[in-house]
Amino acid sequence: MRAVFLDWPGLALKSFYWLFVLYLFLPLSLMVAVSFKDASFISFPLGNLTIDWYAKVIQDKQFLDACLYTIMIAAATTAIATVIGVWIAMLIGSLRGAAQYVAFAVACLPAVVPGMISAISLRIFITTIDLPTGTVAIILGHVVHAVPFVVVMVLTRLRSMPGNLVDAARDLGADSIVTFFRVTLPYLGPAIFGGMIFCLLLSSDDFVRTFFLGGYRPTLPMLIFARVQSGMSPEINVMATLVLVVTAVVGLYAEYLTRRSRIR
C-alpha cells in the first residue's frame, strides 16, 4: 500500500512552480489570443477568430520599416560588441592577480549601471562631442550595454580551455596569431555564438537607451510604445506576438546549439 500521509513540502514545491508558470504564461497567452480576435477592441469573450490583423500588420509599411531598422541596429551592435567583447576577454584571460579582477569588474560595469543613467550620460556625451542623435548614437549605447555579456560568456569558455591546446599549436609551428585564429577562436566558437544571440536580443529589445539616443526613425519597441500611446488595438497584440515568437525561436535555437557543443 502507498504511504497515506501527504508530502506537504514536496506538494508546496510543485504547486508554487506551477503557479509561477501560470503567472508567466497567462498574460502572454491572452495577448496571443486577442491577436486573433475579430473585432477592433480588446475584450472578452473572443468571439470569432481571424488572421486579418496579421495580414494588416504585415502590410504595415511603418511596422516593416521599424523591423528593418531594429534588425540593422542589432546586427551592427552585435558585430561591434562581439569583437570588443572577445578582445577584452582575451586580455582579461591573460592577466594575473588583482589586475584581472579590476579589468573584469570594469568590463562588467555597463551590465549593472541602470539603463536610464547610462542613456542620460551617453546623451550628454554625444551632445558634448556634437554627435547627432540617431543610428550611430543608438548603436553606441547598445554596444556599451552588450559588451559585458559577450565578455562573461567568452571568458567562461576561455577558462575551461585546456592550457596545453595553445602549447600544442605553438609546438606544431603556429605563431600566436595563427594559434588564435585556428585554435582559440574555434574553441570559443559556441560561447561567441551565444554571446552574439544575446547581443541581438538585448539590442532589439532595448527601449530606454534607444528612447534617449534615437532620432525620428523608430525602432520596433519605440513604434509599439507610440501605438500603445494612441490606444490599444489587436494590431499591437499581433506585433507583440510576432516579436515573442521570433525571439523565442532564436533564443531556443541558440540554447540548443551551445548545449550541443558543450556536450562535445
Binding site: N164, A168, D171, G173
Partner: peptide
C-alpha cells in the same frame, strides 16, 4: 621559440584540437 624549433611534443592529456 617553440614554433621555430624542430621538436614536437606528445602532451600528457594529448591536447588534441577538439574542433578538428
Amino acid at each position: 621559440p617553440p614554433n621555430r624549433r624542430n621538436v614536437n611534443i606528445v602532451f600528457q592529456d594529448y591536447a588534441l584540437f577538439p574542433h578538428m
